[in-house]
């Protein structure tokens, strides 16, 4: 069963075609890494999945349910609002620039959505926040404001915040690119644990080491096209696509 699947997903900003017929699917428990040069459309793809961008054409499935279908900027079908929102909640997202709520403490950041979206009581949410923050190693920062934490701690807090909604799949958009090099490891460590625990994940990353080690499958994206797809071994050692070859040579 696929958790998330897109068929011929296209996205344009005006005349600019950013995504061209991207068809990908992610199975339960799978970790998919998306790599590719800057401007390839990787972020846009994740944002389209999570409804932060409306797609131009194509189909989006969550849990094998057709969530929406677009055709040249016109909506062809969409689930009723409630159902749509429920399915979108199955995705948790972690941003490159954390996007923590600066006016709330770590616990409050984690509690916000469970209380106001999940309808969980405050005391329960507090317990949930403590659990999630412990998972990412921030037990001692529960009452700190984000500005008091290091970049690595902030990103781990953002992961805890997303996990508190019990998503089926986590989307990571370059979670470590805004971090100082010495802080990258702690975030990747949390993500590896998460992968090991069976979480389905899509990770846009420039950390080839992580992609190699933790991903089941790697997609190379270039100019809005999913140009090559394969196991980390195949793709890193023997890329077929000339652009992929070039890209890997330039960064490895």
């Amino acid at each position: 069963m696929s958790v998330v699947r897109t068929e011929n997903l296209c996205k344009s900003f005006g005349q600019l075609e950013v995504l061209k017929d991207v068809s990908l699917s992610v199975e339960q428990g799978e970790v998919l890494a998306i790599i590719g040069p800057s401007g390839a459309g990787k972020s846009t793809y994740l944002r389209a999945l999570n409804h932060l961008e409306t797609i131009t054409s194509g189909k989006l499935y969550i849990d094998d349910i057709l969530v929406e279908e677009w055709h040249h900027g016109h909506m062809k079908s969409k689930l009723p609002h409630k159902e749509h929102a429920r399915l979108l909640l199955k995705m948790g997202m972690v941003f490159q620039r954390f996007n923590l709520f600066p006016h709330l403490t770590a616990a409050e950041n984690v509690m916000l959505a469970p209380v106001h979206v999940g309808g969980v009581s405050k005391t329960e949410a507090r317990k949930l926040a403590e659990e999630q923050l412990e998972k990412v190693g921030l037990s001692d920062k529960i009452n700190e404001y984000p500005s008091k934490l290091s970049g690595g701690q902030q990103q781990r807090m953002a992961i805890a915040r997303a996990l508190a909604m019990h998503p089926e799949i986590m989307l990571f958009d370059e979670p470590t690119s805004a971090l100082d090099p010495e802080l990258v490891g702690e975030v990747l460590g949390v993500m590896k644990n998460l992968a090991k625990s069976g979480m389905t994940m899509i990770v846009v990353t420039h950390e080839m080491g992580f992609a190699r080690e933790a991903a089941n499958r790697v997609v190379f994206m270039c100019d809005g096209v999913a140009a090559e797809e394969g196991s980390p071994d195949e793709l890193f050692t023997n890329p077929q696509n000339p652009r992929a070859k070039q890209f890997l040579q330039s960064i490895l």
Partner: peptide, 19 residues
């Protein structure tokens, strides 16, 4: 990013504004 993070967490526009 604040609005995007709120939406990604499932908050409605009104909730994101208010909270």
């Amino acid at each position: 990013g604040q609005m995007e993070a709120s939406k990604a967490l499932g908050l409605s526009y009104a909730q994101a504004m208010r909270l």
